[in-house]
Design a binder for these strands. Structure first.
Lengths: 245, 245
DNA sequence: CAGTGAAGTTTTGAATGCAAAATGGACAGG
DNA sequence: CCTGTCCATTTTGCATTCAAAACTTCACTG
């Protein structure tokens, strides 16, 4: 991870016109997370400056931060590249996320309100509906929202920030709509157990369930990526570390 | 995060002048972690520039990164301050660290070599000696080394980086030499259980032990800080969020 | 014809400059 | 005596500038 994790950086009021730096940081991160730049691609500063209409100073500040988060890597005197992950790197990242999920599960049980539980149950039901109808986009969106809700229920801004940062790197992979349906049903069952433990506020159990859930997810994602890599060479697929350039 | 983060390594070779930015980042982080700046203190850029002998550009880049790591907070148009933590903030941080320790324990059992276990056992014995002799400085140094060794044994650079980054914030608190001796003996017992689980490579058990160990440590540190704050007002004590300024 | 390397161009790293915002203080009014 | 306003100074945010390092190109040598 490099980073990846950031510890602090949650700000109370952001109604103000954020500083240019923060603005660029958010926009550039989104831009990369959304996959507009291929893995390992070199990113000339001036091109990004043109794209975002700022001078190099705030942009370079943002790049340093993104490098610290692990989304980008900076080669001395050779500019920034979108970080390309090996399978091992992805596993490492999932391991960290699993640890965060573990704490989140424990704390959420202790701190979530009854309304909060009800809200997550509703999300789960919606997700189940999407699952039955094979509406994968909605399914993954709701899945993500459930995890986010549990993390937020832990009521720990530092945890939330770290989780978001690590997840940003993962989200770049865009495996979402392509997992085997076998995995989907396994995931549903895991989620059912998670919801059940949450409802009973069984923190120790929920922590372990979430931990294991992420491990399974890691395997599924790695399987998918390995398969992708084996079958396709063409450029724009999300892929593991490329040996090119 | 960042990956990798070259956190604690101060290297003898400075013939290869790394980029000024990285240099400043490391030096400034160490400077803050070592407690040379009081909590909540405002840090004018030009003063730091003078101290480190660089222009504002690389220094500002370093500040943004440290802000992302949570060591520093940046107030818009008002410069950087050393981040002051409330007790809640410290608990949040420990919760995250505990999660990382949990994963570290699990993974370490699966990945550590027999030699690695032997090395940690030696550290434990040395720590025990320091404990018996009440040599607290050595005790805490060895304690820290044991935890670091377990995290490193997990063989996950992203985890290590995150752990280092979170720990940097904690280390700033400098509670080390001031915990109650009651806590020391509890900690020794916890460490014995940890070493035992590691020797047996009982990963699930070790993960939970390390998690609980950090929770206890959190309580001890919070107790200490609360007590400090109650008895002392004078300036230079590590303290929780101050209402001053 | 391939390989080498030298000059020019591009790009990065860091310093400086400039405008806007904030800080501090004097002064006037209550 | 306290309070609030206005102005000078300082400090921050960002753009621009400058120097050094990397890539290109292309001519020249073997």
């Amino acid at each position: 991870m490099n980073n990846l994790m950031r510890i602090g950086s949650y700000e109370p009021d952001e109604d103000q016109p954020a500083s240019l730096h923060d603005d660029i940081l958010v926009r550039l991160r989104d831009f990369i997370v959304e996959g507009h730049l291929p893995s390992g691609a070199r990113i000339p500063e001036r091109e990004l400056c043109a794209r975002f209409n700022v001078s190099r100073t705030p942009l370079r500040e943002a790049l340093k931060v993104l490098a610290a988060e692990g989304l980008v890597e900076l080669l001395p005197n050779r500019g920034a590249r979108v970080r390309a992950f090996t399978e091992a790197g992805i596993r490492h990242l999932f391991e960290v996320i699993a640890g965060l999920d573990f704490v989140a599960g424990r704390l959420a049980c202790a701190r979530i309100s009854d309304d909060g539980i009800a809200a997550i149950e509703r999300l789960h039901l919606d997700m189940y509906t999407s699952y039955l109808r094979r509406e994968l986009t909605d399914y993954f969106r709701l899945n993500q929202m459930i995890h986010q809700s549990i993390v937020d229920a832990a009521d720990n801004p530092i945890l939330s920030a770290n989780y978001a940062s690590a997840n940003a790197v993962i989200r770049r992979l865009r495996y979402s709509a392509n997992l085997k349906s076998e995995r989907l049903s396994d995931a549903m069952r895991e989620h059912e157990a998670i919801i059940d433990a949450l409802r009973r506020r069984a923190g120790e159990e929920l922590g372990l369930l979430m931990f294991e859930h992420m491990r399974e997810k890691c395997e599924a994602v790695c399987d998918y990526l390995r398969e992708q890599q084996a079958t396709e060479q063409p450029a724009e697929t999300p892929r593991l570390q490329s040996s090119e350039t």
